[in-house]
Design a protein around this nucleic acid. Structure first.
Lengths: 263, 263
DNA sequence: GGTGATTTGTGCGTATGTATT
DNA sequence: TAATACATACGCACAAATCAC
């Protein structure tokens, strides 16, 4: 451990980080200007910028040209991943999303788009088709209070989409795609969720309007009927604005427990 | 949109990013040196460093003093979140983790630690106790092939821990804590998982040995008996080395479907 | 509505330290 | 040891966005 031989810009970053955690600099509050910090710490403006860059990359602060540098504050939107598609509910994931957001007192909005594309290896593997095969892509861009919140891409095998013509349209399906497919004989009885995280691509960063230092949460859901995968949904969430929740119970045990406590 | 007025360092970043995606620069491969890039693009070395900094923050490249700058390559380790604690399985999460890693042909190792700490508001809310109340913290640092992979902190309410003395020891519990608690009359029948992502703290970055630009996946699991929450587990995964998987079925529908296909 | 001051963004040059080869 | 390569740090200048007057 090098106690004395720590670079200045890191010491400054550590100091500012501590001040933020201690509440000396409050969320939404403004930091001293770069020249001010430079003088306070007795370093050049460049060195201050290195320190601020560290904190920016940690998602702790955000700087705006002409305004200043501020401590980030973020409100999180919760998504209930395990109840979204309860088989017996008539609500679509879309509606579930909208109501979820409104329940939080925020204003949701979404754009739809439909395209036919070639399956990437990721999609092909999960749908058990060949890479390059045509698939129907339904994209949904979701915003909360005007800010980009998530990008959802759902891929359907071509044969399924042709059977279910609404999938081929660039519009929302009122009763929800899961229900729509179920009514057509392709009832989704299970799914596999894969969760990873990474930094946003430049495109994603633009949509989410995140300055840097905010990762994305990638949620890949593969939906199955009893015989085959019927869709792959890739949802990219702006990391600091979203929380994904799974609620899982051993229903039998819960029931037994309730019976016991009644007795 | 400013097509021509894009800063040089971003254009360079975009160019290098494209070359990496196109396979012109392969994972593990080395980029030209900073002075070389500076000459190629006709800019100063400082500007090249700004561009490389962008890619570093996106987790695409990593630079090492004296060696050079390389395209990152990462292998992912999959964790099956929904099967880890299937009520009827005798395996502990720990053992499940170890076997999972070994199945992937890698070498797992873990360190245990036990402390009594004051509950933070996050932990207190989930355990339905007061902030500052004493809780037992069992920490497990997990490594794969020597590299930090995840940090797992499990918090137990004090009364529960006193009833179950093994929890108070700094050692692994062979049959698994879930089973151990169940045997003592506190059978976990359900859990709530919360998933978010953020950039690592400096401490986490040191443990994971990630150079920067790699986010962490935060997994908070609150386990319940039929009457109360019995534990909160916070697992922090190195983002680019881990994938979390949930497998969920409507068992009744699956059974019905199988019966149909038999008929 | 406009002007100037403030503040961050972009980019240059230079020098020296430190780890690797 | 020497050369190479990235890390840290200084200085300067001007651009662009914002804000107060």
């Amino acid at each position: 451990m090098p106690p004395t031989r720590t670079p200045m810009y890191r010491r400054i970053a550590t100091d500012l980080r501590a001040k933020i955690h201690a509440g000396e600099l409050r969320p939404g509050g403004r930091l001293p200007t770069e020249p001010e910090l430079a003088e306070q710490y007795g370093v050049s403006r460049n060195t201050v910028r290195l320190a601020l860059g560290q904190l920016t990359n940690e998602g702790m602060i955000t700087a705006t040209q002409g305004r200043g540098t501020f401590v980030r504050e973020h409100v999180v939107l919760t998504t209930h991943a395990s109840t979204f598609e309860a088989p017996n509910r008539p609500t679509s994931p879309t509606d579930a999303y909208v109501s979820e957001v409104m329940k939080a007192g925020r204003k949701p909005s979404q754009d739809f788009e439909m395209r036919i594309v070639e399956a990437t290896s990721e999609v092909a593997e999960r749908l058990r088709i060949d890479e390059g095969d045509a698939v129907v892509l339904r994209r949904c861009l979701r915003r909360v209070d005007g800010e980009g919140s998530s990008i959802q891409d759902t891929y359907y095998p071509m044969d399924l989409a042709q059977e279910h013509s609404l999938l081929m349209g660039p519009k929302d399906i009122p009763q929800g795609t899961t229900r729509y497919l179920a009514d057509g004989g392709h009832s989704q009885v299970g799914y596999l969720d894969e969760l990873t995280t990474r930094m946003p691509t430049p495109d994603e960063a633009r949509f989410f309007e995140v300055p840097a230092g905010v990762p994305v949460l990638v949620h890949v859901r593969t939906g199955y009927t009893t015989t085959r995968p019927v869709r792959v949904t890739v949802t990219v969430h702006a990391g600091d604005r979203n929380r994904l929740v799974y609620e899982l119970d051993d229903l039998q045990a819960v029931y037994d427990g309730e019976r016991e406590s009644e007795a």
